[in-house]
Design a protein around this nucleic acid. Structure first.
Length: 503
RNA sequence: GGCGCUGUGGCCGAGUGGCUAGGCAGAGGUCUGCAAAACCUUGUACAGCGGUUCGAAUCCGCUCAGCGCCUCCA
């Protein structure tokens, strides 16, 4: 029996607005599309949260044994800064400001995005397609929508005909909107607007004189509309119908709604079966956003060089902080919360490091109840993860396990009564969840890599032992205190042994 | 105005109609030469008001407060 059968996943499907048992289209395989970033500026922590959320989903699906194709796009055609029919392309604007070619801007921030993803230990997607790399496909897609009668061309622009579409399909099912209500709420734009209807959105835009990013099309030189690439690339790489589509909550409308309409307008199918929306990272209850000026870059996060940051935090601390809440809840950023997460993360890692120092289990007669209890904890953590990827709940169980491990270390008699086989499985799963699913890295261990440092530490430990033995506490304390000042914590253990951790 | 979400103990943050979330901080204890760490114990929590129910923080209604989307946004 595969793990995914043992721990069936349920997902809160934004489209149906209910939690549903996840059933992939093809047994054992999952296709997932996630809306990626527009690469015209540095990503901030809020952006990172969404990608961490989907990284967990990707990792967990794989952990359960699914073969996953994870597609996450790079939006490298700038959406317009101004309203629907005017304004400069964001990337072009940035290019002008930084005196770069648009594609230099794209490359720069794509690289930056990748660095950040790596910093937070996100696994790269299986395919990372760009909008500019799929102009031909996008043109074909638009043509199909026109052929189906759901779009019209006007002076080099092509618009999606929402009203016409609404006659045959439901429009607004994802975001809970309906066409008539929306219309009554839409402020009529001035006569410059070429759309037949304010609700219509652009599939293809005519490139005006100075527009830098432009491609030839049946409707003249132009560039693709804002929502098109996701429909096109998800269809190309995952098919007309696929399993999961994800993105940030703020993309629900109009982006995802338009995407569904485009998919149906082209292929008569709505794309994904399950829609997953990650919630926002907030600061003092407000969405972290560039326009709010309350975002910061990863470098600032690490160094603490930002007015919101009391000090720096490691990437894994931040990742752990994010995982301590559910992806669909808003998460409020604060220094206090981050510091709490940091301690929690270190606590968890400390118990992981303790594993190799543990005595052998099963050296006394086996206590079935205690063995069972241990096994149940890790089993619960798996069920938590299968319950809409509830990392917060799973981590609570990991802490339970952490306490157990610490106890086993201090009281080997507790470990002696545990069935070795079960113990082995529990530990393997415990580590699997921490490193493979949650994608945490053992930062202290990495810092400890140097063998030289370890030998030096052994010398110091030996000195301190001798000082203690001769009751020269002034010296033994000095060794400990000076090391602490240098960022290394010495710990006296039972039986006179000592260990150290690097902070 | 429309659509949707949230309000949990000092802080962060899960949550199911009846059974301990968890982390951080605090208090007491064990251990220790002293620490640190760890372990054990400890907290009148569920915005307010009604209603449904044998029983609700969990379901329904109203009120209050806050947030998101409706323009690009993870």
């Amino acid at each position: 029996m595969s793990l995914y059968e043992q721990y069936p996943i349920s997902i809160y499907n934004s489209l149906e607005k209910e939690k549903q048992v996840f059933k992939p289209i093809h047994e054992g395989r999952v296709g997932m599309y996630v809306c990626g970033p527009t690469v015209y500026s540095d990503v901030h922590l809020g952006n990172v949260r969404t990608f961490v959320s989907f990284d967990i989903i990707f990792r967990y699906l794989k952990f359960l044994g699914y073969k996953v194709r994870y597609v996450r796009n790079i939006t490298d055609v700038g959406h317009l800064v101004g309203d629907a029919d005017e304004g400069e392309d964001k990337i072009a604007k940035k290019a002008r400001l930084e005196e770069l070619e648009p594609m230099e801007v794209v490359q720069k921030y794509t690289n930056g995005f990748h660095d950040v993803m790596q910093l937070f230990n996100n696994i790269p997607p299986s395919i990372e397609p760009t909008a500019t790399g799929h102009i031909v496909e996008q043109i074909e897609f638009v043509q199909k929508i026109i052929d189906n009668g759901y779009a019209y061309e006007k002076d080099g622009n092509v618009y999606f005909d929402v009203r016409r579409f609404g006659q045959d399909h439901e429009y607004g099912e994802l975001s809970g909107r309906n066409i008539d209500e929306m219309l009554s709420n839409t402020r009529a734009l001035s006569g410059q607007d070429q759309k037949n209807d304010p609700l219509d959105f652009a599939l293809w835009k005519k490139a005006e004189g100075g527009h830098l990013m432009r491609w030839p099309s049946p409707w003249g030189e132009g560039f693709p509309g804002w929502h098109l690439e996701c429909s096109v690339m998800s269809t190309k790489y995952l098919g007309e119908t696929f399993d999961i589509h994800g993105g940030g909550m703020d993309l629900k409308f109009p982006h995802h709604e338009a995407e569904i309409a485009q998919n149906k307008g082209c292929c008569h199918k709505g794309g994904a079966n399950y829609w997953i929306h990650g919630n926002m990272l907030t600061v003092n209850g407000r969405k972290m956003a560039k326009s709010e000026g309350n975002g910061f870059t990863p470098e600032q996060l690490l160094t603490g060089d930002h007015k919101l940051l009391e000090r720096g935090y490691s990437a894994m601390t931040v990742r752990f902080f994010m995982l301590m809440s559910h992806y669909a809840s808003t998460l409020d950023f604060s220094n206090e919360a981050l510091q709490a997460a940091e301690k929690g993360y270190k606590r968890l890692m400390a118990s992981v490091n303790l594993l190799e120092k543990l005595a052998k289990p099963g050296t006394a007669s086996i206590d079935k109840a205690k063995t069972q209890e241990l096994g149940d904890i890790v089993d619960k953590a798996m069920k938590d993860l299968s319950d809409d990827f509830n990392t917060a709940k799973a981590i609570a169980n990991l802490f339970e396990l952490s306490t157990k491990i610490n106890t086993y270390y201090q009281q080997p008699s507790e470990l002696a009564v545990i069935d070795p086989e079960v113990f082995e499985q529990v530990i393997e799963r415990f580590k699997g969840i921490i490193f493979d699913v949650l994608g945490l890295r053992n930062e202290a261990e990495a810092a400890q890599d140097g063998k030289t440092l370890d030998s030096v530490m052994q010398v110091l430990i030996e000195l301190r032992k001798q000082a203690k033995f001769s009751k020269n506490y002034a010296l033994s304390d000095k060794i400990r205190d000076d090391l602490k000042a240098a960022g290394i914590q010495l710990k006296d253990e039972k039986g006179g042994e000592m260990s150290y951790t690097i902070n």
